[in-house]
């Protein structure tokens, strides 16, 4: 098991939530029904960042449907860029970008941030435009 994966699983354990509770919370925060998805795979076919994800976007939904904790330990939600390609293509009208955000929020609301200023060098902070830093911190910190 890779170190990143192990840490992700540890982090999931720190949430102290069952998968039933997680799925309820995801649905409540996103306003989406994860069981609407019928696994056609259109979202993953169009997702520009799918290659980088441990679980493809449709697999994330499948894992949620199956109450499989891997949904919460896979890196997918942190790689997702909220580009909304999946949302415009989903034949079932599932807003996967909102589902991903809800999953992130479950961590972020417990103060488990996924990006920090300490992790960036001064050079990078100076190099990056405000628009990138503000967006990244809005998505990955609580």
């Amino acid at each position: 098991m890779t170190k990143a994966k192990q840490t992700a699983q540890e982090e999931f354990a720190l949430l102290e939530l069952s998968m039933d509770e997680i799925v309820d919370k995801v649905e409540e925060l996103s306003g989406e029904n994860v069981f609407d998805c019928y696994q056609c795979g259109m979202c993953s076919a169009g997702c520009p960042l799918a290659e980088e994800m441990d679980l493809l976007p449709n697999q994330v939904l499948h894992a949620l449907q199956m109450k499989d904790p891997e949904a919460m330990s896979a890196n997918s939600m942190w790689i997702c860029a909220s580009c909304y390609t999946c949302q415009v293509r989903c034949p079932k009208g599932v807003d996967l970008a909102k589902v991903m955000e809800a999953m992130r929020q479950i961590y972020l609301r417990k103060r488990m941030d996924h990006v920090s200023l300490d992790g960036l060098s001064h050079r990078e902070i100076r190099r990056l435009p405000q628009i990138a830093i503000v967006a990244s911190f809005r998505k990955k910190t609580g």
């Binding site: 520009p48 960042l49 980088e52 790689i79 860029a81 960036l120 990078e124 990056l128 628009i131 990138a132």
Partner: peptide, 19 residues
């Protein structure tokens, strides 16, 4: 109409470069 990777440039710059 593709996404360039957006703010992932902050902590996944390699992904953005590739795209």
């Amino acid at each position: 109409v593709e996404c360039c990777g957006a703010y992932q440039v902050v902590d996944h710059r390699d992904v953005v470069i590739e795209r």
